[in-house]
């Protein structure tokens, strides 16, 4: 017992530096940002006030509410598309066991691409005047589109690009889930003569739910802080229609130098991300089998 206690003490002492370092690295930026969010800065970076002004300004700021709306719209649209298409792609890969390795690699290649490169590539493809997308549309006798320059469709277009890039990632996670499903339930279903669509809806999907929720958690964190693709392609435009909270906060902080207000926006975004993760983790616990 004494040896154990001594051993534990040694372990605690030895892990303390790493623990302190990790806590400091996580806690310091958060505490510092919270502290900054209660300060008001001038355009030259000088602190000119202290208090809750940034938060009251936020509530009255139309662009903040627009940012919340765009963030949620983009999040829901992208997540639904990626889960549906990712599950479909995973089922395809699961059934096509003899698919050559090169084909599998091609399927998953988009998410290996840095988002900045993907953004630049799509910017060129979707250029309304010189891009390939409109060339294809007009060659087929269809009217050209403004794509990323259209206030009406800019968010769906961004969701499409993100879906192109991240669906394979979701597919890989779901494929892992499919491979771990117990074969005995499928054998029983086969003996009972259950049709394929019923096997999918009644067996595969319910058993896959924990995996799908894991994929949702992983994608949710990225989607709620959606940044690089928008920064490269639209910078929040046209007319703020793709101005997510993250992009808005970044521009306020690093272009207009209102570090206090930007911090308040980022704290709010962090709370949103944390809330989503907690909710999804509870959901995961509920669907665990």
């Amino acid at each position: 017992m004494n040896v154990n206690r001594e051993h534990r003490g040694q372990m605690a002492a030895m892990s303390m530096p790493a623990l302190v370092f990790t806590v400091a690295m996580i806690a310091f930026p958060i505490i510092y940002t919270i502290w900054m969010s209660f300060q008001t800065y001038s355009s030259t970076g000088q602190v000119i006030g202290w208090g809750g002004d940034n938060y009251s300004r936020m509530v009255a700021d139309d662009r903040f509410w627009n940012g919340i709306w765009v963030t949620i719209y983009l999040y829901v649209l992208s997540l639904v598309m990626q889960l549906v298409l990712g599950t479909g792609l995973a089922l395809l890969l699961f059934r096509a066991r003899r698919l050559p390795g090169i084909m599998r690699s091609l399927f998953i290649s988009p998410f290996m691409m840095p988002p900045v490169v993907a953004g630049m590539m799509w910017l060129v493809i979707l250029d309304p005047s010189l891009g390939a997308a409109n060339w294809i549309l007009t060659s087929l006798g269809l009217p050209p589109s403004s794509w990323l320059a259209s206030p009406a469709i800019v968010v769906p277009v961004l969701a499409m690009i993100d879906t192109w890039q991240w669906t394979p990632y979701v597919a890989l996670i779901v494929l892992g889930g499919l491979q771990s499903l117990p074969p005995s339930v499928y054998e029983a279903a086969e003996i009972d003569g259950a049709p394929r669509h019923k096997v999918f809806w009644r067996i595969t999907l319910p058993l896959l739910l924990p995996t799908l929720v894991t994929a949702m958690v992983l994608r949710s964190v990225d989607l709620l802080r959606f940044f690089d693709l928008i920064y490269i392609t639209t910078q929040g435009g046209p007319s703020d229609r793709s101005m997510t909270l993250n992009i808005y906060g970044f521009r306020i902080g690093f272009e207009f130098f209102q570090l206090g207000y930007a911090s308040a926006l980022m704290i709010t975004l962090s709370i949103m991300v944390l809330g989503a993760v907690i909710a999804l983790n509870r959901l995961r616990a509920a669907v665990e089998w």
């Binding site: 005047s129 320059a149 259209s150 435009g237």
Partner: peptide, 19 residues
Amino acid sequence: GPPGVVNYSFQQLTALYRA
């Protein structure tokens, strides 16, 4: 103006005119 001009800065203008 060109379609999508709302996203135009100098890079797009140069590419369009040069082409």
